[in-house]
Computed example of a mutant assay.
Amino acid sequence: MLEVKSLTKRFGTKAAVDKVSFQIDRSMMIGIIGRSGAGKSTFLRMMNRLTDASEGELLFEGRNVLSLKGAEKRQWQSDCAMIFQQFNLVPRMDVVSNVLHGTLGRRSTLATMFNLYPEEDIHKAIDILGRLGISEHAEKRAEALSGGQQQRVAIARALMQDPKVILADEPIASLDPMNAQTVMEALRRIHDEDGRMVIANLHTLDTARRYCDRIIGMRDGRVVFDGTPAQLTTGVARDIYGAGADFSEAATSTEIRDHEDVEAVERRLAKVTV
């Protein structure tokens, strides 16, 4: 289904993503892990065509999506939905309208300007919210919801696109452990029930092992691990994070969010050396 061939993105002389290659032959839930700056987000942005690649190919169902332009590129971005760490909702807009924004790629400019939606789409949006356990919040402003609820609204918006692939860029990085679990269970259920490919960038080893079928580890723009959750040992994790013998998985666990924020964790990981 997906084949990545020597995918590279350079910013000046620095390669943020450096000749990344791997193949996925069936719909799976994939976790990409690695410290900040490993190239995880840049990879997803290239896949969604938010950022152009410097070199390489990215083939989905045999078609190089990096070469698409115009309407074909917009169709791919509809087929390949993106979920962001900071939700990217319209805070003062009601929840159901935020979800309906997932249809913007196939609506006319006039309908978009006047916020006009077919009744069928409105019912579909409410059904998706119900599936994610938040239909009772449909008429509330998005800013009135908790972080976990807002992320589920963002997932609902992605599902409105009816995508073949869902990309999630650090979807739980700003959430507490309970909401993080709810969001990850929602993504896993979408994969299991719909058969959609889900690729999620994650900082947490325990989360990657629990929810993903396959885990890809990135370090300094390169793939340094590609295997099953069972193969992600502490030693392997140490190599992915470029850490020494004192490396502790607690540094990447969701449990630490009870007493430390994510930014503090990332600062500590950034100081770890081999």
Rank of each mutant, 00 (worst) to 15 (best):
D213E: 12
E249Q: 12
S41P: 05
I216C: 05
R267N: 12
E61L: 10
V20T: 09
I30V: 15
C80K: 02
G12R: 11
L104N: 10
G39P: 05
E61Y: 02
G195E: 06
Q149Y: 04
M46W: 06
T234Y: 03
L202E: 00
D246I: 08
I215T: 07
P177G: 06
E193S: 13
L68A: 02
D258V: 10
P163N: 08
E72V: 00
G34N: 09
E260T: 14
T13D: 14
C212T: 10
G221L: 05
G39N: 08
A208C: 09
V262G: 09
R209G: 10
L202Q: 03
G31T: 13
P229D: 12
G39E: 03
R141L: 03
A200R: 01
L44G: 05
G235T: 12
V153R: 01
D162R: 07
R196V: 07
S253Y: 02
L2I: 14
T254K: 01
Y117V: 08
H203Y: 06
E136V: 08
L89Y: 04
V272M: 15
A144Y: 10
E72W: 00
L2R: 04
T13W: 00
V265T: 14
V224C: 14
L104K: 09
E260L: 15
L132E: 02
E72S: 13
G31F: 14
R189P: 00
V183W: 00
K14N: 11
E72R: 11
L129F: 02
S36Y: 06
G37V: 06
A186F: 05
F87S: 03
Q77F: 01
D258S: 14
F225L: 11
E249M: 15
N88W: 02
P91A: 13
R106F: 09
E120M: 09
T207G: 03
R141W: 02
Q86V: 05
V96C: 10
G235V: 10
D206M: 08
D121F: 03
D169L: 08
T182Q: 11
I215D: 04
E263P: 04
A111Y: 05
S41H: 05
T273H: 12
H259M: 11
S108W: 06
S248Q: 13
G39F: 06
V224K: 10
M46C: 14
W76R: 02
S248E: 15
S146P: 07
L66K: 04
L269Y: 01
L89T: 08
T103F: 02
Q77G: 00
H203R: 07
K271L: 13
K69Q: 15
R210V: 05
T182G: 00
